[in-house]
Design a protein around this nucleic acid. Sequence first.
DNA 1: AGCCAATTAAGTATGACTTTTACATCACAG
DNA 2: CTGTGATGTAAAAGTCATACTTAATTGGCT
Lengths: 235, 235
Amino acid sequence: MENEGQGKGLHARVLETLGPEITAGDVPPGTVLRTDELAQRFDVSRTVIREVIRVLESMQLVASRRRVGVTVRPTEEWNVYDPRVIGWRLAGRDRPRQLRSLTVLRSAVEPVAAGLAAAHATPGQCAELTEHAMGMVATSRGQQLDAYLVHDMAFHRVILTASGNEMFARLADVVAAVLTGRTQHQVMFADPDPAAVTLHVQVAEAVRVGDAARAESLTRQITTGAMAELDVLAP
Amino acid sequence: MENEGQGKGLHARVLETLGPEITAGDVPPGTVLRTDELAQRFDVSRTVIREVIRVLESMQLVASRRRVGVTVRPTEEWNVYDPRVIGWRLAGRDRPRQLRSLTVLRSAVEPVAAGLAAAHATPGQCAELTEHAMGMVATSRGQQLDAYLVHDMAFHRVILTASGNEMFARLADVVAAVLTGRTQHQVMFADPDPAAVTLHVQVAEAVRVGDAARAESLTRQITTGAMAELDVLAP
DNA sequence: AGCCAATTAAGTATGACTTTTACATCACAG
DNA sequence: CTGTGATGTAAAAGTCATACTTAATTGGCT
């Protein structure tokens, strides 16, 4: 379990080592890396390293300049919306900060998405929504946090995709990660907030009847609740 | 002006050709590309093509599999938050749809960002804000759209960065692109909506005095106005 | 100060070799 | 005759080593 599985290609393995090192701050901004050294360190050819560098460069994590080397860029310039960067940061040292950033983003996006979903959701999506809301009710008591989480993530994914906005839809994974992170940090025996569960049911209903304003307002209550919860467990 | 400047490296030039072709839909999802064919087509070595493919893969535009080739992935899987993907799509065929998506995203994010800015903005940022709001007032009449745009973009950039949330801050370029796109599509002799100008001044003031609720509400009026404007000029 | 040359590290090209895997072929059992 | 499964082959990406090119930094020389 020391090395990541060798199933993937070489460049993927190198990337999965170097990326997290950078996002975690182990290789601080301004550091200069040389391709030859990296090739030596990972015992791969320079070709492989170059491909990794290209990907890291496309994430704005590094900048490559002739005669000087590969420089780690300052944090503010990183592509923080890249799923892999998000994943690495969530797995790394400043997971709390990252979780907070993402929760704020979620609190901005989800209410608007819910409002749009009320206008655009297909009957099938409405059905899924109520189904998952019911699932949340059913699993909200008695230490079934894992089962609850599955429904919660599915619920929010449907909302985001039913909004009909591709930018919102692509945040489904991020929201899922946030929800997972929150569950993992919660006390194991604490059941979800009953008020939140009720709100989800009401959102599903509002979307079904096409009440955009109500769907938005209710979802805003959910997300502000999530932020308040974050403040309580803040590190 | 036929070819993009040859100042950058080879892989950048190939990327700037292949990327837009994919995002524009000229190379529809499901299409398989072979690396040696691409190498032949662009008259570069396979090494260069491989690096391009890696970057395209990191944008989730393509997937590379052995024995089959490089497959263009379906639109829903693209990394639509990647700045280059956004740029390519804005430059391409479905620019209207993209502009609409981004405007909706903006309408979700900016009000929340403004609320946070009211709580976190430094005195310096408040000064910048009023300065640019004043600039907008000064350039709002008499076909000075370009000068107006500069202040508008700067204003919103300050709001987003002053929010203190890195995810919001990284959307400044996107918002700038949206504002630019809107200006370019407007009739050349139409001055900006006076109501919008007033709202910007009021937002700057609300942020300065730390009235988060008011800053959020005013900004929401700005963004809903922007969306309404989009509906009028909808293609 | 300003210019030129040397040096350094990334960028590119090429060719040989490895690994994975889709596909077709064939054998066998139902 | 058909469907299932084992097997072999070939195609394309993946990897490596090496030689060469290009740009930019550094430092020395005028």
